[in-house]
Design a protein around this nucleic acid. Structure first.
Lengths: 228, 228
DNA sequence: CGGTCGTTTGAAGTGGTTCAAGCCTTGTGG
DNA sequence: CCACAAGGCTTGAACCACTTCAAACGACCG
């Protein structure tokens, strides 16, 4: 298992190997490429400067897929983590991808042009996109009839599992660089209520979120809450 | 414009022509094929008897894409209308497609094997699936931070527009064969509150739902409500 | 060290739920 | 064709989860 000290590209390829059947030998070859990485500062819109059919592969940092309204309200559709892919929106303006921390990524088009990246890698990336799509159904049922506590638990379990698959957890701890407001925008709650929910989880001993890190993460206990 | 007395296949192809750039000549050719249609009674699971990579094209009737829980609760992810496509779920059990009325459809695989259906038709069907996917984002933001009245208005406008594009509206009227419970399962509300919302829309003169039909549909007025 | 932004806590308000009863449709069998 | 039963719709009243507003506290950054 990958520790915290591997490089971003190693973690991202490890995710493809673990979840999407990429051959380890292909993964190694990708890591050895001298890929030109793109860097976005926190708050930047990813892909804003690119021509539409771009495809970005996130190596490091967090972003979100969201709709932002004129009045300042925002709906976060999903969080984008290392190892994930970003596609342009079909309908311009319907949805944007915004970096929530500093983000490092590669352009998949560039990577393919670079050579040495086979068809099988592209297939693994395809399966990754399909899974991201399937997660939208999960998110839909989160928002629909579950209580605030259950929504929160379910999102945290999802994020934990996704981070774990790219080697970004360390036992019961992991970095969660989201403000309460961002969790609120994703879960359809007010930021104040997010605070209260996190407080309940803490007093129940299920997890503690402090200083942008989660500790004491009790996956089984949180999973139980998800049903409610 | 197509009237109410055209056939199901004419309406479905008309939707492809109107929204997804299918050539009218191709549409006519499809209508002339002697297609074997499948029939599902209300309540049946569509595709339950088929091998996974099936693709069904709905010609008549209503269905829904949903997750059904052991305790009887259900989340409806989307409604499936004439002209829409049904794909098998990637993860079995995560989601099913259930007929809400009697449904008539064709298997796209059969239709292609039949000959006379070109590449361009397949592309149009592809664009239709992409749009159905984009609607999930719309539904996500409906559920997230909008009031019950706004959710309801937004769903009704969507259904009206989709029905209109396949010639299933007649002025300010259209058939809406959904029970309050089904609207509730889609909007994340209780059936009782759906009744109340519909009551408000009626007293405001925006629309009346009675006997499975909508009348006096005021699209502009409902559209205004969607923002709130 | 002071300012800013994010978090925490409290109190009051509200939109939607739940429970319960009555009504109206629709379907069924005599 | 009518009588009855079953299921969906409607309405009212009580309750609760989450929101909003407001004020204080704490971390981080110049």
């Amino acid at each position: 298992m990958l520790g915290l000290y591997s490089t971003p590209i190693e973690r991202a390829t490890a995710g493809l190997v673990r979840n999407f059947d990429l051959e380890p030998s292909h993964a190694r070859r990708i890591c050895e490429l001298d890929l030109a990485t793109e860097h976005y500062p926190s708050g930047a819109e990813i892909g804003a400067a690119d021509e539409p059919p771009y495809l970005k592969w996130i190596l490091d940092g967090w972003a979100c897929e969201a709709r932002e309204l004129a009045d300042g309200r925002r709906q976060i559709f999903s969080f984008v983590l290392p190892g994930d892919l970003v596609r342009p929106p079909q309908i311009p303006g319907a949805r944007i991808v915004r970096a929530l921390t500093a983000v490092q990524c590669v352009d998949v088009g560039d990577m393919l042009a670079h050579g040495g990246v086979g068809e099988t890698t592209l297939e693994a990336l395809h399966r990754a996109t399909a899974e991201a799509h399937a997660r939208k159904y999960e998110h839909l049922s989160r928002l629909a009839w579950r209580s605030a506590l259950s929504r929160m638990a379910s999102l945290l379990v999802e994020l934990h599992d996704r981070l774990d698959s790219v080697g970004l957890t360390r036992g019961r701890e992991f970095a969660l660089p989201l403000r309460h407001e961002e969790l609120a925008d994703a879960l359809g709650l007010s930021a104040v209520h997010v605070t209260r929910c996190l407080g309940v989880l803490r007093t129940r001993g299920l997890m503690t979120l402090q200083f942008r890190r989660v500790s004491g993460f009790d996956r089984a206990g949180l999973q139980e809450l998800c049903e409610g």
